[in-house]
Write a protein that binds this DNA or RNA. Sequence first.
DNA 1: CAAAATACATTGCATAGCTATGTATTCTTT
DNA 2: AAAGAATACATAGCTATGCAATGTATTTTG
Lengths: 114, 114
Amino acid sequence: MNNEFIEKWKSQVKKGTLSFIVLNAISKKELYGYELIETIKRTTAIEIAEGTLYPLMNRLKKEGLASSKWVEQESGIPRKYYLLTKEGRENLELMKAYWYELEKSIKKLTNNGI
Amino acid sequence: MNNEFIEKWKSQVKKGTLSFIVLNAISKKELYGYELIETIKRTTAIEIAEGTLYPLMNRLKKEGLASSKWVEQESGIPRKYYLLTKEGRENLELMKAYWYELEKSIKKLTNNGI
DNA sequence: CAAAATACATTGCATAGCTATGTATTCTTT
DNA sequence: AAAGAATACATAGCTATGCAATGTATTTTG
């Protein structure tokens, strides 16, 4: 709220981190779109807009990192569940490795300056 | 290299993290542009392209988070040193707080899934 | 003397998040 | 029962940012 720079910055930080976040989220258990948004909001305080998530999941599918399947409900709107492909799992490991490096780098900077 | 998805992803992760990184870097000691690039590359393995840094520093100045001053050398090209403003220092604290939250959230996801 | 390094800078492209908007069904409240 | 909220999907257009390419100029190195 009311600090414009910080709000814009947070949105920029999400570019990149969101794909990492959702790939992690579906790595243990397949989830559907709406569930991804709600669960991530509840457990991490990271908010993903619907207009962000659905295009993001489509990109991940196009890149071959995730796949999806429709599941009909006995009652209610059908859900599209997302799951990691083998390639997605491999890339997730590379992303984790880079993320840890980045964390370390930033820790160094925030503690010591340079 | 050669993993296209990961390379593109790393570039996306930088959107947002770079401003955080350079603000941290100049928070302890004023630095000039070229020095920022070289020092950050050396101490953190994060590479910032020149075509990224100079527009970035100008944005930070326009937002009022950083200021700059030219320093003539006895020999060589003049250097433009960047330093944090009071507003920059305040915003950096807010950014640190958010970053720690993000780290925690991602740690939760990478360890437990959801 | 040529090449590399130092030091600044801009232009245009590609990418990704967000708001607004839309559709459709089901559940809750009045 | 009707109205509104919640569930569940999706797209279009705007905006912001990193990067390659390119440019200028000086100094150091081989």
